[in-house]
Design a protein around this nucleic acid. Structure first.
Lengths: 271, 271
DNA sequence: CGCCGCTCAAAGGTCAGACCACTTCATTCC
DNA sequence: GGAATGAAGTGGTCTGACCTTTGAGCGGCG
């Protein structure tokens, strides 16, 4: 039996030592010693404070960075992001790739969130919010000739609605889900006809009017109709026109994949 | 190999070397070589494949683990979680701590999601789903005397509704948001009166009936009413009766001398 | 006097090698 | 045949070093 000298009471913590780092940072946040925009102590200092080595600190910070809690700047330090609350979209993106989420499902999730947000926005939008929405509607009508610019204001409008909901959690969720297909929309937007853009602009205007009138039910309906139509429009788009062509190639010849044996098929992927 | 020093464009990657690891794993996932339940190559092998050192691989895997994409088991390997898609709740929890999300906001976000999920469930629930819901309703009525057991079935019921929506993204979001206050509910549940539990069980039964009848509008309304009432019930609860006690005293806390040890006495601010 | 460029400390990023802790499974011994 | 035992294999952590980037201070040049 090897005595293993260093195991006196080192790993006495219930969880991994790296978890201590996350917990420590969490503690700093919860007791208000660390707020958005602040800089964390240097890794070497943090290691001394917590009582672990720097690699362990780095592991914890890496995890926090992946969650979007912190953000490292090479040569400068590690900071807590400033600005409005943001949830990282990458986890959802991975989940989509892993489980083969469909476009329809993503649009549906977005619809639920944005319809709810629109309802809240109608109930609580401040004059400032209303003004922002009005401006973006105007921008939409002003950019019917330029799909790329139109898309920017489209995104801005939906973001503004989420912001007008007054609920930062809802806004974060909307943003996270929306991020998933902005990339895709950027491609389809190029082929949009001005007439379609005009229809979309009109739909946004109806949403805006309902919010301005503080008519929650109308706002919800308008947002729902708008997203249903947008979903249908995207569904008939080419690009992913392989409804059942889900056979993902699988280079069976290559024998360099020793691990997975079974060849179960899964649903269409690609987010 | 590389004599370090001035890179002769070795690191052809635009981003940090650790990002390569994440991208590599993502590639494996997207080309179907890595699916839920599979085990990733060992860290040492992965390091060789990608061409980076093990610490770098570990950093990337740590990030993926924080996102919930992978899951390490000491001594066994790193796996891709099996089962239904799950979004990590920790990022949202940190965001709540950082920006001081209120309970009302969280309940509101949950309400939006679950009301939408209930509507979808009413449209698409299979007989199996309906049966599961019926069973959980029965369990609720059977556990009116035991708040702890009641809570378990309460959670199960809402999870089942989310699952019956047929949309895994919505289910993931519901789960993520719900996780935030299960902890809290566990504490308040202890003080619940049987009469309150009976009311709650009745509310669940109404939701179930609407889903079984495939009446989406009724399901939405029933879920909305239920969550509004639950929110009001929690709002009048004591426990977090420190509305403005979020001033975390002064940092007079003696420095962290050697090791924090078991200082589990942390204040559970919101959550 | 003032602006520009240089220098250097600080901080994050990466690498290398080693050892420990845990799992797993095949072997061996009752 | 079943249980104890041992050896690989794998993630977890540590030590220590070096590089790259950043940013601010400082000195030279105009």
């Amino acid at each position: 039996m090897k005595p293993a000298g260093t195991s006196f009471f080192t790993t006495a913590s219930p969880e991994g030592s790296t978890h201590q780092v996350v917990a420590h940072v969490r503690g700093l946040i919860e007791r208000g010693q660390l707020r958005p925009g602040d800089r964390l102590p240097a890794e070497r200092d943090l290691a001394g404070q917590i009582g672990v080595s720097r690699p362990t600190v780095r592991a914890g910070l890496r995890a926090l960075a992946a969650m979007g809690v912190v953000q490292s700047r090479h040569g400068s330090g590690t900071y807590i992001p400033d600005g409005p609350p943001v949830l990282a979209a990458e986890p959802l993106s991975f989940l989509a790739a892993l489980h083969g989420f469909t476009h329809a499902e993503m649009y549906e999730a977005r619809r639920i969130l944005e319809v709810g947000a629109a309802g809240l926005a109608a109930e609580r939008a401040t004059p400032d919010h209303v003004a922002t929405l009005a401006e973006e509607v105007a921008n939409l009508f002003a950019s019917l000739e330029s799909p790329q610019v139109f898309l920017v204001h489209d995104i801005n409008f939906h973001r503004a609605v989420a912001g007008a909901s007054g609920n930062p959690i809802v806004a974060s969720l909307v943003e996270m889900v929306s991020t998933l297909y902005y990339e895709r929309r950027r491609r389809t937007a190029e082929r949009a006809f001005p007439r379609d853009l005009r229809d979309a602009a009109e739909a946004h205007r109806r949403i805006y009017q309902a919010v301005r009138a503080h008519d929650a039910e109308a706002a919800r309906t308008a947002m729902n109709d708008h997203l249903l139509q947008a979903s249908a429009y995207q569904a008939q788009e080419p690009g992913h026109a392989n409804p059942q062509a889900d056979v993902p190639v699988e280079p069976a010849a290559a024998g360099d994949s020793p691990a997975p044996r079974r060849a179960r098929r899964r649903r269409e992927s690609q987010i």
